[in-house]
Design a protein around this nucleic acid. Structure first.
Lengths: 156, 156
DNA sequence: GGTTTAATGTTATAATATTGCATTAACCGA
DNA sequence: TCGGTTAATGCAATATTATAACATTAAACC
């Protein structure tokens, strides 16, 4: 990422959306939770829980512990504000909480950016395949690993 | 699973396929690797590495250690004989090594069976979405969690 | 204000996975 | 078939990710 996009805008938008969504649902975006969300949105690269733990400990004088982070993560997942990338054991902000909340990602193995796919085609294909087997979907995760446009451009 | 399917046949087929594929590729399906593969094929439910470790230790007198299991798993993954289900930290046999090796699964949260989807629609949709963003795919993982036909029939 | 519930702090530990190095087994050319 | 080379396994330690259990503090609400 970093090219032709103002990332502060991403962060601001995400935080505004999060505040709105939480107030709407009567959920409390406490300081810790907001901190974790901000740290996740610091980039478009999925971040591990223990990295968040380090950053969180760095920004407040008090040393945080794993449960603090995991509880905040659980909350953010419940509210649909972040996604967990299972193949990386890492977390990334959700661009569009609410919108079906699909969780389909392109993950670049070079720059590590995880781009959420908002195209409907994949979800539709999955639903139709599942229906053919009378399978009722709870959640779907699609994690596509490869190389993004930008990194493919680099010589390697 | 277990209903209307002879599972011994699954195991035998899988082992035969594995032997064939390995000899074809000049890879060695050693006793440990074959044992692990057999243990994975003992059911259609993804199995964790430490469960495999237990079973392996049980069947030979000698107590095995994690690297033994993980090395065998790495080998089997490389040969395309098994899949890793990231959302479960578990491993399951591949029905059709060779065939694009997609790794698309329906995972029933009740019976835990993981059924590989061999329909092409999903892969095609993913490829087209990736192409639109000039993303080059290395590997794709699709993990759909929900309830299978059989378990939906049960009252719960 | 006092009660209830939600959130956080704290310690310990579980579950999953890897590193590094020693040893043994298989392969392969002479 | 011997000896050298590579691949596979044994083994001990440790890294990484995640959770359990219980105490304490803060917020919400009447």
């Amino acid at each position: 990422m970093s090219l032709n996009h103002n990332h502060q805008r991403c962060i601001d938008d995400a935080m505004a959306m999060a505040r709105h969504r939480c107030s709407e649902r009567g959920a409390r975006l406490t300081p810790i939770r907001a901190d974790i969300l901000k740290l996740i949105w610091a980039s478009h690269q999925p971040v591990g829980a223990y990295d968040l733990l380090e950053s969180l400990s760095a920004r407040s004088e008090r040393r945080s512990t794993p449960p603090t982070v995991y509880r905040a993560l659980d909350f953010l997942l419940e509210q649909g504000l972040i996604h967990r990338i299972a193949s990386l054991n890492a977390f990334v902000g959700c661009n569009d909480p609410g919108h079906g909340h699909s969780g389909h990602f392109l993950i670049c193995k070079d720059c590590n950016n995880a781009t959420e796919l908002l195209a409907d085609g994949i979800g539709t294909a999955i639903q139709s395949a599942a229906r053919q087997q009378d399978f009722t979907i709870d959640s779907q995760s699609v994690e596509i690993v490869g190389r993004c446009k930008h990194c493919a451009g680099q010589n390697d």
